[in-house]
Design a binder for these strands. Structure first.
Lengths: 192, 192
DNA sequence: ATATTCATGTAACAAGTTACATGATTAG
DNA sequence: CTAATCATGTAACTTGTTACATGAATAT
C-alpha cells in the first residue's frame, strides 16, 4: 500500500493537482515509485475521502479548473507512521533483464539493441538529474546544503537515482562488449 | 505481460514444479523479476493451457506428487518473440526510498534503521551472488566462460544483480553518514 | 517437541495498465 | 494547421498480494 505514501511524500513538496502530480512523478518520484496518471487520480480521490489530503478547486480563466490537493495533519501523521513501519523488500521487475536472461535462446542482436536503448535512456536521466541537483543546491555547496537545508529527502533519493543510472551504464556497456565479442566469434569461428 | 516471459526464461534452466520455480525465483530471478508462489502457480497453469509449457506428473514415494513443467517449442518461440519486442521501461517501486524521501517530515532514526536493514540484506545478497557465480563458472576463468559457455544470460543478469547491490551499499552508507551528522547537529547545535 | 521443507491450491482483494472520452490553449 | 500542454475522468481488464487451507517428512 505504498502508492499512497509515495503520493503523500510527493505532496510534501507542496500542493498539487492530479496533473501536476503526474508531472512531478515523471521527473523525480519515478526514480523510486512509478505511477500512471490514472493511479494518481484514483489515489488522490481516496486520500480526499479519508481526510489525508484536502482538495480545493482553483478556478482558472483560460484553463479548465483544477482540484489542488494539499496534505492535512492526518496525512502528515500517516506518512510519519509509514516511515516507522518496516519497509517491504524492494520488488524489482525489469523486462530488459528478462530479455538478457533469455539471450541464449534468442536473437542476441535484438537484445543488444534493447540494451543500447536503455543506455541512451540512462544518459538522458543522468542529465536531468544533474539539472535537478543544481536546482536543489541553488548555488550552495553540497556539504552546506546537506547540513543546513530544511529538506534533504529529495536530494538523497536523487543521489539514489543517479547511482542507479550510473550502474545501469556500467553494466550495459560491459554486457554489450561481451555480446559483441561473442557474436563476432560465432559469425567467424577460428577454432571450435 | 512479462511475468509470463520471466517464467519461460526461468524454465530455460530446466523443467520445474511450481514449488521449485518459486525457489529458483527466490535465489536468482528475483534480481530482475519478483513473483510470489501464487503468481507462479497461476502462470504455470495458464502456460499449460496455452501450450507454452507442458506438465507431467512425477509420482514420489515419500513426498506429495509434483507437476513438473517444461518448455514446449511454442514456449521457446514465444520467448524468442518477446526478446525482439521493445522492452517497456523499468518501473521502480521501493518503499525504502519513499521513506527516505519523507525523512524530513518524520523520524530520521527510524529511517536510518530501515537503511541499515537494507544494507544487511544487500550484503547477504552479495555473498549469495558470489556463490552462484562460482557455481556457474565451475572453475573456469570468467573470460573463458563468457567466450565458450552455452548459456551466458544467467551470468549477465547475475552481474547486474551484483552491481545493483554494490551500489545499494555505497548509497546507503553515504546516506547513513549524512543523516548521522545531521541528527547529531540537531541534538547539540553549536551554531544555528 | 517444534520448525522448516516439500507440495499444491482457492478466494478475496488491492494495485496497476490500457483504452476511451472530452475539450480548450498555446507553441511551432 | 498540427502537435503538445493543460485538465479530468470512466470502464474494463490484467497483475500482484494476502490470507487461508491441507498435510506429510525431515531436520534441530
Amino acid at each position: 500500500m505504498a502508492l499512497r505514501h509515495a503520493v503523500l511524500a510527493a505532496l510534501l513538496e507542496g500542493e498539487a493537482s492530479g496533473y501536476q502530480l503526474s508531472k512531478r512523478f515523471d521527473v523525480s518520484v519515478a526514480n523510486f515509485w512509478s505511477a500512471t496518471p490514472q493511479q494518481l487520480y484514483r489515489e488522490l480521490e481516496r486520500l480526499g475521502e479519508e481526510g489525508l489530503a484536502q482538495a480545493r478547486v482553483v478556478e482558472q480563466q483560460r484553463r479548465p479548473n483544477k482540484r489542488v490537493f494539499r496534505l492535512t495533519p492526518a496525512g502528515r501523521a500517516e506518512l510519519r507512521e509509514f516511515t516507522k513501519r518496516p519497509a517491504r523488500p524492494m520488488a524489482m521487475r525489469d523486462d530488459l533483464l528478462v530479455q538478457v536472461q533469455a539471450v541464449d535462446a534468442s536473437d542476441p542482436e535484438a537484445v543488444m539493441a534493447a540494451i543500447s536503448e536503455r543506455l541512451e535512456h540512462a544518459r538522458g536521466k543522468l542529465q536531468l538529474y544533474e539539472r535537478l541537483r543544481q536546482q536543489l543546491l541553488g548555488g550552495q555547496s553540497e556539504s552546506r546544503y546537506l547540513a543546513e537545508s530544511e529538506r534533504i529527502g529529495p536530494y538523497l533519493t536523487l543521489m539514489g537515482g543517479r547511482i542507479f543510472e550510473e550502474q545501469t551504464l556500467r553494466w550495459g556497456e560491459r554486457v554489450l562488449a561481451i555480446l559483441a565479442r561473442r557474436t563476432s566469434r560465432r559469425a567467424s569461428p577460428h577454432q571450435p
